[in-house]
Amino acid sequence: MDLDTRTPTGRLIFAVVAAMAQWERELIVERTRNGLAAARARGKKGGRKPILTDEQVTEALARIQAGENAQTVAAEYGVSRQAIYKRSKNMRKEIEGG
């Protein structure tokens, strides 16, 4: 299709097509949000499953606080030290209700 956006008709067609694309995108976003909300209402939780259990995270933190090298402790669990710290932070948030 030969669309000349220098003419009033060309700009109108371009604007209409752009508006339809934006409308379609917003519909997709709305449907996705509704689907995620419905899944949460059914008790589903999104995201990757945690590698470590809460007990493993607590144990790893205790070992690190006792003086063991964080990198070594994390390697024994097959995760990065950041993974342990991030997971412990998320556990604190859940306990605090946030």
Rank of each mutant, 00 (worst) to 15 (best):
L52Q: 08
I95L: 14
I64A: 04
V29T: 13
V17D: 00
D54P: 13
G78P: 08
K93Y: 12
A70I: 04
R11D: 01
I28T: 15
R81M: 09
A19I: 01
E26K: 14
N34I: 10
R42C: 13
R11L: 01
Q71C: 06
P50Q: 09
Q82K: 12
E24G: 04
R11I: 03
I28Y: 08
G67M: 10
A18W: 03
M20F: 06
G78L: 09
V57K: 02
G46M: 13
E24I: 13
E68R: 03
A37Y: 04
K89W: 11
G97V: 08
G97A: 12
Y85E: 00
L3Y: 00
E76I: 02
R42I: 05
E96P: 09
A38P: 06
R33L: 15
A74K: 04
G46H: 11
A83K: 02
G78W: 02
R11Q: 14
R42Q: 15
V73F: 02
V79Y: 05
A21Y: 03
T5R: 05
N69D: 14
T72M: 06
G10M: 00
A21H: 02
F14Y: 05
R25N: 13
G35F: 10
L36F: 15
L3P: 00
E59R: 09
L27V: 09
A21T: 03
Y77G: 03
E68W: 03
A75R: 07
E59L: 12
K45V: 15
Y85H: 13
T58H: 10
N34P: 05
V16M: 01
A66E: 08
G97K: 08
I28V: 09
R48H: 11
K93G: 13
G43Q: 10
G97E: 08
K93V: 10
R33K: 12
L3E: 00
T9R: 05
I84S: 01
G43V: 12
